[in-house]
Design a protein around this nucleic acid. Sequence first.
DNA 1: CGGCCTATTGAAGCTCGTCAATTCGTGTGG
DNA 2: CCACACGAATTGACGAGCTTCAATAGGCCG
Lengths: 255, 255
Amino acid sequence: MQALLCQLAFAEGGRIKIVSSATFAPLIRQVALFRGLSPTTLDQLGVNHVIRSVEEGSFFFQQGDACRHLYVLAQGRVKITQITADGQQVVLRLIMPGQTFGSIAVLRPESDYPASALAMEDSTALAWDSAFLRGLAQREPSLNLNLMDLMRIHIEEMQARFREVATEKVEQRLAQTLLRLAAQTGKRQPDGHVTIDLRLTRQDLAEMIGTTLYSVSRLLSSWERRGLISTGRESVAVLNPHGLVSIAEDLDRKE
Amino acid sequence: MQALLCQLAFAEGGRIKIVSSATFAPLIRQVALFRGLSPTTLDQLGVNHVIRSVEEGSFFFQQGDACRHLYVLAQGRVKITQITADGQQVVLRLIMPGQTFGSIAVLRPESDYPASALAMEDSTALAWDSAFLRGLAQREPSLNLNLMDLMRIHIEEMQARFREVATEKVEQRLAQTLLRLAAQTGKRQPDGHVTIDLRLTRQDLAEMIGTTLYSVSRLLSSWERRGLISTGRESVAVLNPHGLVSIAEDLDRKE
DNA sequence: CGGCCTATTGAAGCTCGTCAATTCGTGTGG
DNA sequence: CCACACGAATTGACGAGCTTCAATAGGCCG
């Protein structure tokens, strides 16, 4: 384990801090993956993890690394990405605190991570050894069921995104994505608007929907002119969700 | 169960035959999902299934149906599809004999199938009740592990396809898909060529990669002119795999 | 203030989708 | 057995949508 940490720190320039583990006991009880587990098991989970802090721009793991740990994000934001041979990147998932990533690790002791986990800001995650979790799952069937349910959700999300990118126009996909982000993580402001406090660049949004940062910028500008949203550097506020819905459903072709 | 069969038969016009179950015992032992299970369990699986035959063009299940069964295809070919609000279709998977589909059913008693399973030719599948399988999994942890492994493979496939459709051109995706089909199900002919005996229309290929049948037709014609493949009605033979690889990797832009 | 990352916008061009017309191939029924 | 019908496939023309490149402006931090 220590070897892995050092290797990653070296490879990516990430600074690794080891933090007191008592801090995170409440978090563990809220994680979907650990729902319904016995107090004994939860205690074991509270003891047998490692805390990893990774600074912005560094990786928790990279595509192709041997996958030996499952992570739960405690603070920060992480994006799960794949890079193509010619350097293009796609964003598969955004991870918020309390969410699980690297769960492939539990299944196959000898496989590699199929994607990379990049910290979008300084982030801290709890890491469990996959062999330890496999042992735990033998005594706690709920753990397996929870894990399968996470995988099911993940499959359905990827299927939906594949369908979207295969059938819908950039305009629709972007509107859809903004609505989804607003619903998941947006915060309602005193003035009634919903802001997405995620700091996503135009580039990030482009990689989530399979387009270029230029197309994203053009669309956001035009929507701002129409009063649907208000944009800022690395931020978007949704002013008129209904307008975005009609774009997402392609109800307003040609005006 | 009988009610479900009748309902589906009615809804889709599918003709349902109930066949002797002894026929399929050897198949069950070869299915990846059932690998490593005890002989006792395999016997139980051999007894507690239902055999469903569905004729070409009918559905084993449709998007939104309550999902109560897991299927293993015994003969025929099935495609797993999703349909968009405006009638466009995408093909998520092709199922060949021995492969499992509808596996989401096992996890959530009360959920719906997220996609449809359409018989591309007259097909027969074994169906297990999801409650029965959940019970079985409590005594056979291997079943859970196998299922999770299938799900892992499925996730990685969908991630790869998302990356492709988000970053690659139609040309590359089509070449990639032909190579994949040739590797998975192609048969080497006496003359050394590899034919894909799947009967896939241009439309099917288009729905697999997110394009139109016209683009597929144009590309296949041009590749045939260049001697890379030989095409026929609902069939393709790969003559020069290496040429397709260089197209898939975009090594020959502009000639 | 200067440097760097992010964002905007225009212009040009290419890929791809769309529509329409036609041909090809397969199975059916007279 | 041939003619016909129907689905599958081909091909051309056109244009919309999107990417690409380049130039410029904006915002934030040291």
